[in-house]
Structures are given as C-alpha cells and as structure tokens.
Amino acid sequence: MRWELAEEQELFQESLRGWLEKVAPSDRVRRWMDSSDPSAFEERLARDGWLAVGAAEERGGQGGGLLELALTAEELARRAAPSSAWLATMTALPALPDDVALDALGGGGFAALVVDGGRPVDCADGVSEDGQGRLHGSVPLVLGADRAARLVVPVRAPRGRELRLVDAADAGVTITRRSLLDRSRSAADVVLDGVSGRPLDVEAEVVLGEAALRGAVLVSADALGAMQRMLDLAVDYSLQRHQFGVPIGSFQAVKHAAASILVSVEAARSIVYYAAASVEAAQHDSATHAAIAKAQVTSSGVSVGDAALTMHGAIGYTWEHDLHLLYKRARLDERLWGRPSDWNERIATALELLPTG
C-alpha cells in the first residue's frame, strides 16, 4: 500500500523543506553541533510559526495533527537539524495544561518528559514521592531535558502513578548534559532532590500511553527522513564517483543496493504515515501500528545507513560529508524510547493466536 498525502499536506512539507534548506544549511548545522547550542535554531523555529503546527488552535497551535508532526519530524531529520527540544515537547504535549502548552508552542519554554531515553515512554519508573509531597529520584538520558524549561515527571505516589509539572530551574533539580554520538540531538541525566511539583489533573497511565505512541511515531518519522536523505546522497555520489572510467552507479551491484534502499524508504513512508493517522484517530489497533513503525522503520534506518556507507566508501565517514550525520541520527532513532525488540514484544503480545489446523 502506498500512502498518498493530501494536497495541503504536500504543500506544508514542501514549504518546511524550503525553509529548512535556507535556515539550516549543513555548515550552520555543524556550527550548532560544535557549540552544543541550538538555541538560535529553536528560537527561529518558534518565531516563524513551525513550532505550533500539529497542535489544536485552542492550545496555541495552528491546527493539524500527528501526521503533520510526522512530516515535520521527517523534514528536520533530512537536514540533521537540532530537534531534541521540539521532539520532547511534542511528545509531552498531551500531559501539558492548556496554559503551559500555549506558552510552549509560542516559544516561551520547551517541555520534556522525565523518562529514561532507552525505554518506551510509558515505562517511566524513576521518581518517587515522600510523605511531604516532595519528589526524589534520578532518571538517565532524558531527551531534551537540557533544553527544557519545564519537566513533566511521572511519579510513584501512594495512589498510583501520577504526573507532576516541575520547573527545570528549581533549586532541587540537577540536569547534567550527556554527550551523544548523534550530536544533532541532546539528552541529560535528571536528578530531583526534594522538589515540589504541580499536580497535573490527568490520568497518568492514559496520558503516558498516548505519549508513548506519539513518541514512537515521531521517532519513526525521523528515521524515515534520515533514510530518504541517505538515499539521495548515495544516488548522487554513485553518479559522481568514477571507476574504470565510468560512474559507479552503472555497476549492477550498486544499482541493486540503491534499489534495496529505495524499497526500504517507500515501505517506511507508508508505515509511518499510516501509523500517524491511526494514532491520531485512536483506532482500535493504533498501539500496534505505532509499535510496528517504531520496530520496523528504525531498524530499516540502520540497515539503510550501512548500505549507504558501503556505497560511499571511506568518504562517508568523514566530518566534511553529511552522510555520517544521518547515519548517527538513524542509530539513535533505533534506540530512542525503546529498541526494536522492545516494540516487537508489544506487537507479539497484541497479536491474536490463531489455530494452525
């Protein structure tokens, strides 16, 4: 099945792609990586209105839904643009009160879910509440925590799991940035020591479940964007690089490698877009669709990266070439918020066993 975007969605994607080509060229992306400070890009993203796409108008957004967010994630990945703050905020959005969401989407301060970046979002289990209502605990590798003004903290409380909203500048909050192989994004270890948080009037399990599916879809869309750009780079290089007096793209083995990458990219595109639409519509099997996207697309992203690097040879590993930026991005997507094996377990659990006879 090939998923076809609506005309307005195609126009949105083309507009964002053109904006990113102008605002986030490769040399500028590298400078942001070198400085570990993507604030200039984040401020521009908010100022030009892209941060508000995919959120309801009553919450300060410009309309659209998860499919528009998936298109945004795809285009950000194609440029290897900094996206930790954006991705963390869009994933945390279901938990945010309207006033906080309005501020965040307007560029007043990003938000992050305090969950272990190596596990699915709804598996959060690192913070507890003492008898005075104060929070204690540590959570490793929280995506975008170093960029966030507010933290949404899942808490083990006497009444069950609850959510608290914490100011990242609180004296009891320690945020230690971690270096990642993928320098286009960032994560941090978060320690809470006697912090008071604003209780959020939501059903924690429901909201975390929704956030987990949103996160799975958006990470998969990021992997799709990286895959598409790696395909583009590999094809361009195969036409430029000559051996024995002819472009290497004329060799049968290279043609087969490029065709295999193309098949992976087009399959991933349909999986991601369908999963986004399914989760947005709260379809009966939406959790399975999101799990399939996270497991299959992010795994394919790594395979595509390996194939693209093989087609490029040693030049693909050099700092001057863009390919390694996309390859590292795909590697993080595979592990972020759960490995493919974690999500395959969810698929297996959801599938109904049928008799063989």
Rank of each mutant, 00 (worst) to 15 (best):
L87S: 08
Y327F: 12
D322F: 05
L200D: 13
L102C: 00
L200R: 02
L353A: 14
G245K: 03
F12D: 06
L96T: 09
R59S: 03
I248K: 03
P154V: 00
E205K: 11
L93E: 15
D170M: 03
S299I: 03
A24M: 15
T318E: 15
I261C: 02
S303L: 06
S26N: 10
H289R: 14
T356Y: 01
V202I: 06
S83V: 10
V100M: 02
Y317S: 09
L213I: 02
S39Y: 04
A55I: 10
I175F: 06
A70L: 10
K255V: 07
G197H: 06
P355Q: 02
E42D: 15
G61D: 11
R31G: 05
L143A: 09
D201S: 00
L180M: 05
G197L: 03
T310E: 05
D236V: 11
G338E: 04
G109R: 13
L45N: 14
L163E: 09
V166H: 06
V254T: 14
Y273C: 10
L102M: 08
K22P: 06
K328L: 01
R134K: 15
S264M: 15
G108F: 01
D130W: 11
L351A: 03
V219M: 13
M1W: 09
I261S: 11
A223G: 01
L16H: 07
Q296P: 15
